[in-house]
């Protein structure tokens, strides 16, 4: 067990190095000149050269890459060209905001998916099962950037029940989920984000609970005439490691893929930051955001794997 965990942890080092190479290569392939976005249209070529020198963009590419990786390893991702703020701090504070939405969405999806998936698994082949399967496929087919717009029109503009955008008057620094005045800002984005994981988790709950129900030990309990809820408890216990793994992965996907939902709701998370960095050609910010997001994803996957291997030693991925 410990050996597996250590092996699994060591393995992320080459992956992370590969990730840095991809991030860097992307920026290198990107057209355009990073200094240009900073200068007024009539600045002289000398000014552009001065800025390129200042940020080290005039160095050979491998020198730039080496420096960047070494600094990144110590948590220094440079300074945003536009805002002049340290990229690491920017990304980390945005990551917290994105985590709020992603965790909320996964939890909401889990609660609903768990109920629906278990009911479906217990009544496999029935109308309820068919309906819940259809619902889960619908969930993974809805473009969430469209759903978000529809929700804003209905609940924010027409009904006026919930705010349309942003994080509320207190902002992210003192954002508190226990305060309704602030929590209400997170509701629409969380619902929007939860639809995709809802479909996926529901499918996986249904499959794993159905599998557990089919196991001999549970068949035996059934034959003994145990009440349905007791049987379900057993089945769910058996299916849990698998469901946990799916949830963890969904959380990772939401954190990394929040750009569309955050754009619609003006939510100041990593997706919003990414969009801004693309728009303004802010190379250090773009590189840093992509790097932090993909490394978070790797770490989330690692945690999921380790947890799953603890709960269920049969599953060990390499």
């Amino acid at each position: 067990m410990i050996g597996y965990i250590i092996k699994r942890m060591l393995y992320i080092i080459p992956v992370c190095l590969g990730v840095t190479a991809v991030c860097f290569a992307l920026m290198y392939l990107a057209p355009g000149d990073p200094a240009q976005a900073l200068l007024p249209p009539d600045a002289t070529p000398e000014d552009a050269a001065y800025l390129l020198r200042l940020y080290g963009f005039d160095q050979p590419v491998w020198v730039q890459y080496g420096r960047w990786v070494l600094r990144a390893a110590s948590g220094d991702l440079g300074v945003s060209l536009q805002s002049q703020r340290p990229v690491f701090r920017e990304v980390m504070s945005a990551l917290g905001n994105t985590a709020v939405l992603s965790a909320g969405a996964v939890l909401l999806a889990f609660v609903l998916a768990f109920i629906l998936g278990t009911v479906a698994a217990y009544n496999i082949g029935s109308r309820i099962d068919q309906a819940s399967t259809t619902l889960s496929i619908t969930g993974v087919s809805v473009p969430n950037y469209w759903l978000g717009i529809v929700l804003v029109i209905v609940f924010a503009v027409e009904l006026g029940w919930l705010p349309a955008a942003g994080m509320g008057s207190a902002g992210s620094d003192s954002f508190s989920l226990t305060d309704w005045a602030q929590l209400r800002y997170a509701i629409l984005p969380i619902i929007t984000m939860s639809v995709l994981p809802l479909g996926i988790i529901m499918r996986s709950v249904r499959a794993s609970v159905a599998e557990a129900l089919g196991q001999e030990s549970i068949q035996l309990l059934r034959a003994k005439g145990l009440p349905p809820y007791a049987i379900l408890t057993h089945a769910v216990k058996n299916a849990f490691p698998q469901i946990l793994a799916v949830m963890g992965l969904q959380f990772g996907f939401l954190v990394g893929g929040s750009i569309l939902v955050e754009t619609i709701f003006n939510w100041p998370g990593t997706g919003f930051l990414l969009g801004k960095a693309i728009l303004t050609r802010d190379v250090p910010l773009l590189q840093g955001t992509i790097l932090v997001l993909s490394i978070s994803f790797v770490i989330i996957n690692l945690v999921v794997d380790v947890l799953q291997s603890i709960f269920d030693p049969r599953v060990r991925r390499t």
Partner: peptide, 21 residues
């Protein structure tokens, strides 16, 4: 492949098309 696996799909797609234009 593992390296590309380390990127969530939306992020990778946005990162590539965002930087290439």
């Amino acid at each position: 492949m593992d390296v590309f696996y380390a990127f969530p799909s939306v992020l990778l797609a946005v990162a590539i098309s965002g930087t290439l234009g």
